[in-house]
């Protein structure tokens, strides 16, 4: 049964995914593009809020070494079952918005997404700043940098690899959790999974899974590319191994002329 049943399902899924009718929205149904936009929208809002909160907090805690308990508390939040928190908040909040907008679902979803995204960004930012070698920090102060300069010009650039990895793991969790947000009747790519399940329309359900996986992979790739350009090669360890000394001198001369 295994192979025989599998092939048709893969083809049926491909068929569902490649049907142009499924991509466009109709007055009755939101298409793939619409749900993709909604999914990206929830995720971006949550990540921006989480960054605005967690990045400065992580930098401050790492730089001063004070209030490290905040990091522990944030990490303890990871033990919370996300789906449970989501359902609880929806049940608490949505009645207050009943019948008017989808804010009753949007607000609890965003709260859960932000709460999820904060711990990895916060703890990685903190760890990144903490990991800067004491000699480097000592030299920075010793040369007459102010606290702000040490943080911005030395600690932050050196913490970037860890900050990026924290942000990437936050982003993946947000995209994954935005998917299960569809369970509480909100849009997003998870809609196809839950609708497909409810209607026993398995090609749609599996197609939704493909779309979510693709979104996660593409988003991660994009951030990885940004990271490559933002993080100094001296920190990431990617050096031009094959450039000859001469071409390097030439480049330098050019820059100085």
């Amino acid at each position: 049964m295994a192979a025989g049943g599998a092939q048709p399902m893969i083809f049926k899924t491909l068929g569902w995914l490649t049907d142009p009718g499924h991509w466009r929205s109709t007055p009755f149904d939101t298409g793939i593009l619409g749900q993709l936009g909604a999914h990206v929208g929830f995720s971006v809002i949550a990540l921006v809020i989480a960054l605005v909160i967690a990045l400065p907090a992580g930098l401050a805690i790492g730089h001063t070494g004070r209030a490290t308990w905040v990091v522990s508390v944030a990490n303890a939040v990871r033990a919370l079952p996300t789906i449970g928190a989501l359902v609880l908040l929806v049940v608490i909040i949505s009645p207050h918005f009943y019948g008017r907008t989808n804010a009753g679902f949007l607000i609890p979803t965003e709260i859960v997404l932000v709460v999820l995204a904060i711990p990895p960004i916060l703890s990685n930012t903190y760890a990144g700043v903490q990991n800067v070698s004491p000699a480097v920090r000592d030299a920075a102060f010793g040369m007459g940098m102010t606290d702000r300069q040490v943080l911005g010009r030395v600690e932050l650039p050196n913490a970037l690899p860890l900050i990026f990895s924290g942000f990437r793991s936050a982003m993946l969790q947000v995209i994954a959790t935005a998917t299960i947000a569809s369970y509480v009747t909100l849009g997003g790519l998870g809609r196809f999974i839950y609708d497909g399940l409810a209607q026993k329309d398995y090609p749609q359900m599996i197609g939704g899974g493909v779309l979510v996986a693709a979104l996660a992979l593409v988003a991660d790739l994009l951030v990885a590319v940004v990271q490559r350009y933002v993080v100094s090669r001296g920190v990431s360890g990617r050096f031009h191994r094959n450039t000859s000394v001469d071409s390097r001198v030439a480049a330098l001369v050019e820059e100085n002329v």
Binding site: S133, A135, V136, D138, A139, A140, G142, V154, S232, G234
Partner: peptide
């Protein structure tokens, strides 16, 4: 001027 053991160079700068 300040020079320390292990130099303490900034890893992210040339």
């Amino acid at each position: 001027g300040y020079v320390i053991q292990n130099a303490g160079l900034f890893p992210h700068r040339t």
